[in-house]
């Protein structure tokens, strides 16, 4: 096709977590309608044809909801566009002849597995520490027995929309997971269902986050700017408040 874009890619290649990585140059020609990941698919297909190992990158739903994909494109997680995941980035947003740098998410808490794939299991551990409402199956009351104002439900949804991709951590100069943690804490703090465990949740999740080596927030708000779901830093303010009030009010003197 004539309207293909010719691009120069500089892709981070690293064969295993301990190996020394480096940027490798590739030249690609791609349709402007293709997505960024489809461009990498094509590159990989070419590499495989030449018996070379394809670039490892993770992706799944390719609709911007599963949170699996994520790479740093020209210095920004999920690329230059706002409120989309990498899989939703289309090549028409690049210029013919452009050089594109592709790097993995970088943070101490997200060790590189291979090439562009990183280990984000720390997020799971934070949720396991308290990101839930303790209700056993079958013990719930009728759903409409608990009216919740439309606005509160809507705000809770805004917080719950997080896809756990880790872009916030990747872009934060401190490798902080505050946006991720605060979104979950806020969702439950807003809802009546979340009240019984409210203090304990904030305490436990923050303690786990600190333990896993995430940095602390210095309010640059880069996370909000890069978040594919536009999660607001107001969640972080809310978490700060929740944590402070939990620490002041809870009877937990051990920690």
């Amino acid at each position: 096709m004539n309207n293909n874009l010719n691009l120069k890619l500089k892709v981070w290649r690293q064969s295993n977590p301990k190996a020394v990585g480096a940027f490798v140059d590739y030249n690609v020609s791609v349709s402007p309608d293709a997505s960024f990941l489809e461009m990498l698919d094509e590159l990989n297909n070419e590499l495989e044809k030449n018996n070379q190992e394809p670039v490892v990158f993770e992706s799944d739903c390719r609709e911007g909801i599963c949170g699996t994909c994520g790479m740093v494109i020209n210095g920004e997680p999920h690329g230059p566009l706002r409120k989309i995941a990498t899989c939703q980035l289309h090549m028409r947003n690049f210029k013919d002849g452009q050089t594109i740098w592709v790097e993995p998410f970088r943070a101490k808490a997200f060790p590189i597995i291979k090439d562009l794939a990183v280990d984000r299991s720390a997020f799971d551990k934070i949720i396991q520490a308290g990101g839930y409402i303790s209700v056993n199956t079958g013990s719930a009351q009728d759903a409409n027995a608990l009216p919740i104002s439309k606005d509160i439900a809507s705000d809770a949804f805004d917080s719950a929309a997080c896809i756990g991709c880790g872009a916030c951590v990747a872009t934060c100069k401190n490798g902080s997971a505050m946006l991720f943690v605060s979104a979950k804490v806020t969702q439950f703090a807003l809802l009546p269902q979340g009240q019984p465990e409210r203090q304990q949740r904030a305490e436990a999740m923050v303690a786990k986050m600190d333990e896993l080596g995430f940095g602390s927030c210095s309010n640059t708000y880069a996370c909000e700017a890069e978040c594919p779901k536009g999660i607001s830093v107001r969640n972080i303010a809310k978490l700060n408040h929740e944590y402070l009030s939990a620490k002041c009010k809870s009877t937990n003197v051990e920690a």
Partner: peptide, 23 residues
């Protein structure tokens, strides 16, 4: 099917609501 909705609401799933606060 009805129990599922009850269960999910109890878990904090933010379903869409009417102005009166009901689902």
């Amino acid at each position: 099917s009805g129990n599922i909705i009850d269960q999910c609401v109890a878990q904090g799933v933010p379903f869409a609501r009417e102005y009166g606060g009901l689902l």
